[in-house]
């Protein structure tokens, strides 16, 4: 049997809903495991991405760390995929783009309802927020897109099956949703 395809996944400015949806392929994961193995991913806890065949990116780019992770994936993955509305157009986090970062932070950490010991987090370990949330194609070249919020388990299954079969990935109308 041919070597397994290496797949890396990450969640940037996303809600992990896309990763949860990936798990919705349920028992098909066992079949998938015969064809792929995971590299860097919340599923493996591997911290850095090695050379991979496929990189699945959930979420847009909202802070400096997201930029570095995204670039690491692009450098290492032959095929980079924007997974879900957030990676494709910024998604719901990008709804903050109409407000100043300062106003967002004040609303969350200073003036927000029920805030105690109000202060804006400033630990040096915390990545700095960008002034806007960006879709990932504005930072790196993206090869394929899986629309949906989240894309259904069937979308993941169809997409990965196509790649495993060496075919150009395509989605039938029934699986193409922007919501």
């Amino acid at each position: 049997m041919a070597d397994k395809l290496k797949v890396a996944t990450t969640s940037l400015a996303g809600c992990f809903g896309c990763h949860m949806s990936f798990l919705d392929i349920n028992e098909r994961m066992i079949e998938l495991a015969q064809h792929i193995e995971f590299d860097r991913s919340p599923i493996t806890d591997i911290e850095h991405c090695g050379p991979c065949d496929i990189g699945l990116i959930e979420g847009g780019v909202c802070n400096s760390d997201n930029v570095h992770v995204l670039r690491e994936f692009r450098k290492n993955c032959k095929v980079l995929v924007a997974v879900g509305a957030c990676a494709i157009n910024g998604g719901l986090p990008a709804m903050r783009n109409h407000f100043k970062v300062e106003d967002c932070l004040n609303e969350s950490y200073i003036d927000g309802l029920g805030v105690e010991n109000a202060q804006i987090p400033s630990d040096p370990e915390l990545p700095l927020l960008l002034d806007k949330v960006h879709p990932i194609h504005e930072i790196v070249k993206v090869d394929y897109y899986m629309p949906g919020c989240p894309p259904s388990g069937d979308v993941f299954w169809t997409f990965l099956s196509d790649i495993i079969a060496g075919e150009e990935p395509s989605l039938p109308y029934e699986l193409l949703h922007f919501d």
């Binding site: 924007a82 494709i88 157009n89 910024g90 990008a94 783009n97 109409h98 806007k132 960006h134 879709p135 194609h137 504005e138 993206v142 394929y144 897109y145 899986m146 629309p147 989605l171 109308y173 193409l176 949703h177 922007f178």
Partner: peptide, 20 residues
Amino acid sequence: QGIGCYLNMHDNHFPHFFAN
């Protein structure tokens, strides 16, 4: 959205304006 799906559009291709 219906047109987007009809045209098999998967992404928005261009940088977003994020207009106010």
